[in-house]
Simulated assay, not measured.
Amino acid sequence: MTDPNWRKSTYSENATNDCIEVADNQPLILIRDTKDHAAGLIEVTPAAWAAFTGHVSRN
């Protein structure tokens, strides 16, 4: 894997860290808490991430 290129949602407020960060770090998608990087990462497949974001955007 390469070094992750972390990004926050465009819906996140710039003044706070109350969000998650996501990195497309093939072959996995990495997810972490912006305010607590030490808590660790969640790793999911691109298919699982697409299913999750598709579901969230419909609700």
Rank of each mutant, 00 (worst) to 15 (best):
M1P: 15
M1N: 14
M1T: 14
M1S: 14
M1D: 14
T2Q: 14
T2W: 03
T2G: 12
D3Q: 13
N5P: 04
W6Q: 00
W6P: 10
W6I: 00
R7Y: 01
R7Q: 13
R7S: 12
R7K: 07
S9T: 11
S9H: 07
S9R: 06
S9I: 12
T10D: 13
T10E: 11
E13A: 15
N14H: 14
T16F: 07
T16L: 03
N17A: 04
N17M: 11
D18Y: 07
C19F: 07
C19V: 09
V22Q: 12
V22C: 07
V22A: 00
A23C: 03
A23K: 12
A23Q: 03
D24P: 03
D24F: 06
D24T: 05
N25F: 00
Q26N: 14
P27M: 09
L28C: 12
L28H: 09
I29N: 02
L30M: 05
L30A: 05
L30N: 03
I31F: 02
R32Q: 04
R32D: 05
D33I: 03
D33W: 05
T34F: 02
K35N: 13
D36W: 10
D36N: 13
D36S: 10
H37W: 06
H37E: 07
A38G: 04
A38Q: 08
A39L: 04
A39D: 02
A39P: 05
A39E: 03
G40D: 09
L41W: 00
L41F: 00
I42W: 09
E43Q: 02
E43A: 15
E43V: 03
E43I: 11
V44N: 05
T45F: 05
T45R: 10
T45Q: 09
P46Y: 12
P46S: 04
P46F: 02
P46R: 14
A48R: 08
A50W: 05
A50P: 01
A50L: 10
A51S: 12
A51E: 15
A51Y: 08
F52M: 08
T53Q: 10
G54S: 09
G54C: 07
G54R: 06
H55S: 11
V56F: 10
R58W: 08
N59V: 13
N59S: 10
N59P: 02
N59I: 13
